[in-house]
Structures are given as C-alpha cells and as structure tokens.
Design a binder for these strands. Structure first.
Length: 473
RNA sequence: GGUCCUGUAGAGCAGUUUGGAGUGCUCGCCACCCUGUCAAGGUGGAGGUCGCGGGUUCAAGUCCCGUCAGGACCGCCA
C-alpha cells in the first residue's frame, strides 16, 4: 500500500483511509505474513480489491459464506460495498474458518490476486484473519442465498440480521435515494427544508385518531402531519418542505397502512390554484425517480425495478369525471360516493396507462365534504375542492391541494363545522398576519418505495414498522 | 369492526378430505468426506408441547367448541 488512491467511480473523491488494519496487532493465525516490510495495511472495500492486484490489502466485514473443501476453504466477506472472496489453504486457518458461523465480523489481510476462477475475477490469498465480533448466532434463514425464504413476520421479528440480506436491504437503498431526489428537486425549486414538532397539544385536526401521551402531566399528542406548521412556515419562507415521521392511531390493518410512516411534505405560497402544486409534485416525483436510477442502481438491478417514466405533465381527471367514467365503463356505479374505493383507484390507474401511457394519474376536485377544513373549494363548483390525489400503480401516493389563506375564511370554515377557533390560535395567527394563496402536498415514502419495488406489503419497505400489532423490534 | 384463510423442528412446507405410533420434503444446524467453490457436492446424525385450553373417541396433527397469534379482502382512512 503506497498511500491514498482514487476511489471508485463517484465523483473522484479520495478514499478516506479511516483507520489502520489491525490484523498484525493481534495473535495471528499461521499463514503468510502480510507485508514484508512489517508495516500495516489500511482497510479497503470489497469493491476496491481489484484495483490492488499484487498488493497486500485488508478488508473487513461479515462472513457472508464459508465453503469448505478438502484442500481449500473459501470465505466470502461482505461489506457495505459488496462481496469479496478469501481463499484459505493453511490448516489452522481452515479449521478456524470452519468453526466460525456466518455473520461473524472479521478482518482479513492478504494478497489481492487476480484469478479468473474467482467471483469478480479477484480474490484475497494467503490471508490472515482477525475476529472482530464473537461468533455470530445463526440467522433464522440464510442471508447468503439469493432468494429470501422467510415470510414477512419472520423477517420483521429478526430484522437486526434479516435486513442484511441484499434483497431486504435494497428497498432501503431505494428509499434513501428517493429522499435524496425529493430534497434535491425541491431545493432546486427554491424550497427550504424545515423540521417541525412531532408532539403537539391539540388533537383537533380531522377525525382521525391520534396517539395520546403524557407531557409533564398535560395531555399531548403525536403529530398526524406537519400540516399546520408547514402552512405557517409559508408565511416565513414561501416554500418549505419536510421529511419526517407522522403518526396515525387509526386501526387500519392492511398491507398499505402503518401507525407511523415517513411523510414527504411540501407547501408553497403564491399559487394560482392546486394546479401549481401539482406541477411541483410532478417535479418532485421525477426527481425521486431520477435519483433512484442514479444513486441506487444496484438495488434497481437486484430487485428488477421498472422505473416509471414521469410525463412532463401528469394526466389528471376530475373526481366527478372519474366517477362518470367508472359508471360508464365498469360494472359499478360509484356516483354520489364521497371517495374512491381502492378497487376504483386501481381501475383508474389501468385506465391512465391505456389512455395516456402514464403510470401516474392525478384525480382532482374531491368533494369538500371529505376534505379537512383548511381545504380550498373550487370557486366554480364549491361542493368540490381544489385538491388532488396522485395515484401510482393502483395506490394513492400523494394527497394535496390548495388551502384557504384568508383569516376570515378559516373562521367561517371552523364555524361551519361547529368548531371553536380557540385550539387553533397559534395556527390561525399566521393567517391573521397575512398569508398568500398557497397549497401543498404530502407523499408517503414507504408507499412510494413499495410501488416502486412491487412489494406486496408496505412493511417490506418500512424499517421496523409500527402498526396495530407490532411495536418491536 | 366484518368475512375468509393459516398455525406441524431454527426457516419454508406436505400430511388434516376418509381419525390408527411425530409419517415426510427442501434449507439450515452438528460430525465426517470431497483438488477451486459460486445458492458447492456427498455420507451420517441431532432437533417436535403438531399455537394453547377443553370436548368427542378404544384412539386426535386430523373431528367439534373456545382462545391466542399471523395473513388476505372489505370497512375505515389529511
């Protein structure tokens, strides 16, 4: 090792040699000493071994798989970048490798050797080994097999180890890329990222149930959304977004509902109506899809994710027209219903693909009766709202719309619902002090990733999901 | 909250229809074998409160009742 080298593709940043390889510092198993000059090596990643053929290298990671043959033992080490094969021939080292269970953390120093027989064409030979963890407990199923044989409850119950499986980890690589794309797209549009409280004093928004908790002896609640705060911050920054958890105490026990999930929220001022918000939704989603392709290509490849085209303008259909369409073209007649059933949403998505070649579809103008009090009505048809949902592959992914912005309209809307303005005082102050026409939206991250990866249950794309039955791990 | 389905070894499943000794499969685990593996291969072995409780029966994994757990659909849902 002669010093820092260029890293793998990705901006040309120098690799940070974050620490010394400690293999020689501990009692070593017999084997060829790593360096003739007695020095120490720095850890490199599995993906970098090929760049060091002929040199002594050090890798560290989890024992992904040990394959013992009579005269040679192969140990595959997994780190954050991937896998690398280690070849052991020394009798004592072979014996020890045979005793170590998979998932034990090890550090290996040896010679990077090109070999066409090795996976990836390179492997580490003449290794010395240091164990960095106690021998690992056997996982409930094989992490090293390409297919996941366990059912969802088993995966969730044993998340600490099962998430290491490349297929179970991949959705969270896509999740991270999605958030990055969301953030990048909105920052590019002049939005400011904010962080709002998740413990609130009032449980008054909407009829949805909230989690109640004790706050120094007072009643408090977990926030169902950053709605009030993000609107308030429009009065400060004009354009804001937030990535954070929201909590729903509703007893939904389905493959698409959670008690806690990650909401990608945005709100912007000086809009004409909800269509300006929809344009931002389009750009945000396009940024997310692009970021997945750019930042999580391995996960896309592994899961065979089909990245959707995001049209320059996502097709939209009015709620009333959607109901007419359903009544005309299906066996059901939902006209007069205040909302679309999940089956109707699925049908409309198929229709959008057929008619518009788009996997995304806006449904606009939901009835005011089903929308929260801050929803702005359609000036032409006041029974309908300036709101929208974005449907994607059969599922409601985004809800948004134009909000009321005049203080007097809020007082009237609350009065119409028989509610006192008192609990909303802090929120209403924003409007009393002058607020532009504005709107916003919220996108469910786990739902987005689930639709993107084809997961049949949102829990495959949720880290440590919280639902009716599950509070651990 | 409603309807339906499923609980059998560490994991994933057969076996339940027609009651007859925990009968079996794939993987893992343990031991041994194997000259380069790629989800290695071979031989042998260990591992079971058939979710739990009650009932029917000479006899229950199997039939009945209850209960608990998991799942699906619906309802509900900013």
């Amino acid at each position: 090792m002669t010093g820092p080298r260029r890293g793998p593709a990705g901006g040309g940043a120098k690799v940070r040699w974050h620490r010394e390889c400690k293999v020689p510092a501990r009692p070593r198993l017999p084997g060829t000493p790593g360096r003739s000059d007695g020095g120490v090596s720095m850890r490199i990643l599995s993906s970098q071994v090929a760049e060091h053929v002929g040199e002594t290298v050090c890798v560290a990671g989890w024992l992904h798989r040990v394959r013992a043959l009579k005269s040679v033992t192969f140990a595959v080490v997994r780190d954050r970048a991937g896998l690398v094969q280690v070849v052991a021939a020394d009798a004592e080292l072979v014996k020890r490798l045979g005793e170590l269970p998979e998932e034990t953390v090890v550090e290996v120093e040896g010679t990077a050797t090109a070999n066409p027989q090795a996976p990836g064409g390179v492997e580490i030979t003449s290794p010395v080994l240091r164990e960095l963890s106690d021998p690992a407990l056997t996982p409930p199923f094989d992490i090293y097999r390409p297919v996941v044989t366990a059912a969802l409850p088993t995966v969730l119950d044993n998340a600490a180890v099962t998430l290491r499986h490349p297929r179970l980890r991949a959705p969270f690589e896509i999740s991270a890329a999605s958030v990055s794309g969301f953030r990048g797209a909105l920052e590019g549009l002049g939005f400011t990222e904010i962080h709002t409280p998740k413990v609130v004093s009032s449980a008054t928004e909407s009829g949805a149930n909230v989690f109640k908790l004790d706050w120094f002896g007072r009643n408090a609640y977990l926030a169902q959304s950053p709605q009030f705060y993000k609107q308030t911050m429009v009065g400060v920054f004009e354009r804001v977004f937030e990535v954070g958890p929201v909590f729903r105490a509703e007893p939904h026990d389905t493959a698409r509902h959670l008690a806690q999930y990650t909401s990608l929220d945005a709100e912007l001022g000086f809009v004409t109506d909800h269509r300006d918000v929809m344009a931002v939704v389009r750009d945000a989603v396009a940024g997310m899809v692009a970021a997945i392709a750019e930042r999580a290509p391995a996960a896309v490849e592994l899961l065979k994710v089909e990245l959707p085209e995001v049209p320059a303008e996502i097709p939209s259909i009015h709620f009333a027209d959607a109901q007419e369409l359903l009544a005309r073209e299906t066996d059901e007649d939902p006209r007069g219903e205040p909302d679309l059933a999940p089956a109707h949403e699925r049908w409309l998505c198929d229709w959008a693909v057929r008619e518009h070649g788009s996997q995304f579809l806006f449904v606009t103008g939901y009835p005011m009766a089903k929308r929260p009090f801050y929803t702005h009505p359609d000036p032409e048809r006041p029974e309908f709202s300036n709101s929208f949902d974005l449907l994607f592959r059969g599922l409601e992914l985004v809800t948004g719309g134009q909000r009321l912005h005049r203080h007097s309209d809020y007082l009237a809307a609350l009065a119409a619902r028989g509610e006192s303005p008192e609990p909303y005082a802090g929120y209403l102050a924003a409007f009393a002090h002058g607020m532009p026409p504005h709107g916003g939206f919220a996108l469910g991250l786990e739902r987005f990733v689930a639709r993107m990866t084809g997961a049949d249950n949102i829990r495959w794309t949720t880290l440590f999901p919280r639902d009716l039955h599950r509070l651990t791990p």
